[in-house]
Design a protein around this nucleic acid. Structure first.
Length: 456
DNA sequence: CGATTTTGACCAGCGC
DNA sequence: GCGCTGGTCAAAATCG
């Protein structure tokens, strides 16, 4: 018996919205390059690097070398020189990207080190013993199935060491991967041997080592801490296209929402721990809420890189900030506290065990320009520490107005969601978290709200 | 025929 | 302890 496809979300067949197509991404990245150096340069250069790799590697190039007649040697030599120059330029660009990333990352580390290791993290770890199990006793359900990973580790290892590294050698330095490494470092490998399913081994070894050296103890100390990035966007499509391949593994009716929640798992690589939940907003069914969890353990296509970068950056920010927070804050305006249109967040399930950052990209169609000036970025923290005060989290919410302008400008100028998100997140991460803002913690709630389906 | 989706069952966490 | 809920599993169904 034939059943209608995607009947769960909409009864009409709607094509998948491709927010993150490669073409749009290219345009977006090019346009956004002025706004944020590190991230956008990395984007553009990664793409260029891929082209270069394609040109320089494989049978095509070899074939040219071997098949051309001697009389063409001069032409070939010139071409070779040109390509060498281009390659050199690209390398220097890549170095610059790496430096930018390092600067950005060290900024983040400085902030984290300045804050020190909060006590409540220790308490939280005690509370969540099951999640924060000792590195060698990590729950299988938390991560990926260890059994599956071990069963497939041969293939997976092969994928990483041969396919990934060979095909995308320069990508191993890319920002998203290195950025993600901080919180993809998980202990699952210890039980399953060297070819763990979720360790950050998918970056280059050198960079991995460097990152491990740079990663502060507090980050390594809580390798299993989960953060979620929730993206709200208006879409009639059943699912937004983010460049990754997903396999649906479950669907549930969530309490308080007539629309079912669908569970997806990344299938671009065996053992990739990334999952996402897709659900329509109960209040506004045109709003599609996609919640990402985890970080990819494999190279990503350019179209997916931006999203991964975005979620990684958001999660990094969230973890670095929320974990130091004694806050039970559940609603807060983020970027532009001056704007009455700034969306706030909202509701947070009391049972939500994971910190969640919500990127609200819903914009009323009536006032695109005006609305686009307000990029509502909300963060949700599980109210696990009642009675605590607003500190770090409040800091995150009150970035300088310049930052807000940068973020909103990126959003306004860019139809591409993920690229805009990447710009926004990276801007937030790069911006110095200045001063004690506890005095502003009492910002009045805004009228607009978003609901984050981050319950577990 | 392999990949994907569907869907009921199962499990864990949490509140009462 | 029990029930509720969210998340995942896995067999069956379906698709391409």
């Amino acid at each position: 018996m034939e059943r209608p496809k995607e009947m769960t979300f909409l009864h009409t067949a709607v094509e998948e919205v491709d927010f993150f197509s490669e073409n749009r991404l290219r345009n977006t990245v090019a346009r956004a390059a002025d706004g944020d150096d590190a991230l956008d340069h990395s984007n553009s250069r990664v793409n260029i690097g891929l082209n270069l790799l394609t040109t320089n590697s494989g049978d095509g190039w070899k074939g040219v070398e071997e098949k051309e007649k001697p009389s063409d040697e001069i032409i070939l030599q010139g071409e070779l020189n040109r390509l060498s120059d281009e390659n050199r330029q690209l390398r220097s660009m890549l170095d610059q990207v790496t430096e930018n990333y390092s600067a950005l990352y060290s900024q983040l580390l400085q902030v984290m080190q300045h804050q020190g290791v909060p006590e409540n993290r220790i308490e939280e770890r005690k509370e969540k013993k099951s999640e924060m199990a000792a590195p060698t006793t990590i729950s299988a359900k938390q991560l990926m199935d260890p059994g599956r990973i071990s069963m497939r580790e041969t293939n997976e290892q092969h994928y990483r060491t041969s396919d990934a590294d060979k095909q995308l050698p320069t990508l191993s330095n890319s920002i998203d991967e290195r950025g993600a490494i901080a919180f993809t470092k998980r202990p699952i490998s210890h039980d399953d041997g060297p070819s763990d399913g979720a360790s950050p081994s998918w970056g280059s070894n050198m960079n991995q080592k460097q990152n491990q050296e740079r990663i502060p103890d507090q980050m390594l100390e809580y390798p299993c801490r989960k953060a979620r990035v929730s993206v709200r966007a208006r879409s009639d499509a059943p699912m937004i296209s983010d460049g990754c391949q997903w396999r649906k593994y479950g669907q549930k009716m969530a309490k308080g929402n007539p629309c079912p929640r669908a569970y997806f798992r990344c299938t671009m690589a065996i053992g990739c721990p990334v999952r996402k939940q897709v659900q329509r907003c109960a209040d506004d069914k045109t709003i599609l809420i996609t919640t990402y969890e985890g970080n990819h353990n494999h190279p990503l296509p350019p179209a997916a890189t931006t999203m991964a970068k975005t979620t990684s950056a958001a999660a990094t920010m969230l973890l670095s900030g929320s974990t130091t927070s004694k806050d039970s804050l559940v609603t807060s305006p983020f970027c532009n506290p001056f704007s009455p249109y700034t969306s706030t967040m909202a509701t947070l399930s009391a049972s939500a065990p994971f910190p969640t950052i919500t990127l609200d990209l819903t914009q009323p169609p009536t006032a695109p320009l005006h609305q686009s000036q307000h990029f509502p970025l909300s963060m949700c923290l599980p109210p696990r520490h009642p009675g605590s005060s607003s500190t770090q989290f409040a800091q995150l919410q009150r970035q300088p107005s310049v930052l807000a302008e940068t973020v909103t400008a990126a959003i306004a100028s860019d139809p591409n969601f993920t690229a805009a998100l990447a710009v926004a997140i990276s801007s937030i991460m790069a911006a110095p978290r200045t001063g004690n803002t506890a005095g502003n913690s009492g910002s009045p709630p805004r009228t607009q709200s978003c609901t984050t389906f981050s319950t577990n």
